[in-house]
Nucleic acid binder design. Structure first.
Lengths: 152, 152
DNA sequence: TCAAATTGCTTGCATGCGCACGCAAACACA
DNA sequence: TGTGTTTGCGTGCGCATGCAAGCAATTTGA
C-alpha cells in the first residue's frame, strides 16, 4: 500500500477521506451536544420534515436511509421518548406504522437543521467559489455507480 | 432545510455525502467478506505495515486513527486472535505495549490492501482525469480546518 | 528518598447497530 | 372460504464503540 497509490491518487483519495471524517465528526458532535440528536436521528427527522404530512411509513424511512428496518424502528423509539415523533398505526394496512412528527419535534428539527447548514457552510462550502461548487457537483455525478470509468 | 441549501450547494454537499457513503459501504463489505477485516482493523494493520519494524505503540495507533485508546486496544485483541498481530511489552517503558505485525498478518494485509486499492480505483479514481485528480487534491487542501474560508 | 501525580493500557458498563427471528396482518389462489 | 405465503414491524442477541474507572509503572518534587 505505501506505493500502491500514486502521489496524485493519494492527494485525491486521502484528502477525500480526511475531509469526510473531519466534518462528520464535527457534525455528530455538534448535533449531539446542542440538540441531543445523533446523525441517524437527524436524518429521520429530516425525512419526516420533508414529507407531505410530516409522517412516513417506517419502511420508507429505512429504505431511504442507510439504516436497517430494525435500526429505524429503534431510532423512532428514541425520538418518541424525546417527544419528537409519535407512532401511528396505518389505517390502510394494519401491519404498517407511521412515524409522525410532533409540533415540538418540528420546531426542534428546524433549529438543528439551521445549525447543521451553518456548520456545513462554515467547514466546507465556504471554502469554494460557485464555479468550484458546480465542478464538485459534476464530479459526484461521475462518481455514481452507474457512471462509466474514464478508461472503459 | 428544504430550501436552506442552494441548488449549487446541494449538488456539492449532497454528492459528497452520497459518494462517501456509497464507497465506504463497498469497502467495508469487501474487506469483511474477502479478508475478514473491518475498516478499523484494516487501518490498524496499515499503520503497522507502514512502520519501521512493523510495530507501533498502542497509543500511537490510537492517536493516528479515529479510534479511542480503548477501541484500539480491543481492535488489537481481535487482530491478535486472528493471528495478524502479537502484543509485546515495551522494553523502555514497562507500562507500554507494542502491537507487532506477524508474518502472516503482513501477507494477509498485502492482499487486502491490493484489493482495497483496486476497489478505490474502480469506484472513484478511475472516474477522473489526472488534471481532475490534482484539482480534487487541491480542494481537500482548502477544506482543511486551518484553511480560511473564501469570504473571511 | 519516597509519596503524590501522571501516564499507558485494559476493563466494566451503557449505547447503537445489523441479523435472525417472531407475530400479526394482508395477499394469493383454489 | 380456507390455507399457505409474503409483508411490515418489533425484539433478542451478539458485536463494536466511547467513557469512566482501575491498575501498574514511571515521573515529579520537596
Amino acid at each position: 500500500m505505501p506505493d500502491l497509490f500514486t502521489k496524485l491518487e493519494r492527494a485525491a483519495w486521502g484528502g477525500f477521506i480526511a475531509t469526510q471524517s473531519r466534518i462528520f465528526r464535527l457534525i455528530e458532535d455538534d448535533l449531539r451536544a446542542r440538540f441531543g440528536l445523533s446523525h441517524t436521528e437527524f436524518e429521520v427527522l429530516l425525512r419526516l420534515y420533508l414529507s407531505e404530512q410530516g409522517r412516513v411509513r417506517v419502511q420508507d424511512l429505512a429504505a431511504r436511509s442507510l439504516l436497517s428496518t430494525s435500526g429505524t424502528s429503534r431510532a423512532i423509539d428514541r425520538l418518541a421518548r424525546a417527544g419528537h415523533v409519535e407512532r401511528q398505526g396505518a389505517e390502510e394496512d394494519g401491519r404498517g406504522a407511521y412515524a409522525v412528527l410532533t409540533e415540538a419535534g418540528r420546531a426542534h428539527f428546524e433549529q438543528a437543521a439551521e445549525a447543521h447548514v451553518a456548520l456545513v457552510r462554515r467547514e466546507f462550502l465556504s471554502r469554494f467559489t460557485p464555479e468550484e461548487l458546480a465542478q464538485l457537483g459534476g464530479f459526484w455525478e461521475r462518481a455514481r455507480p452507474d457512471a462509466q470509468p474514464r478508461t472503459a
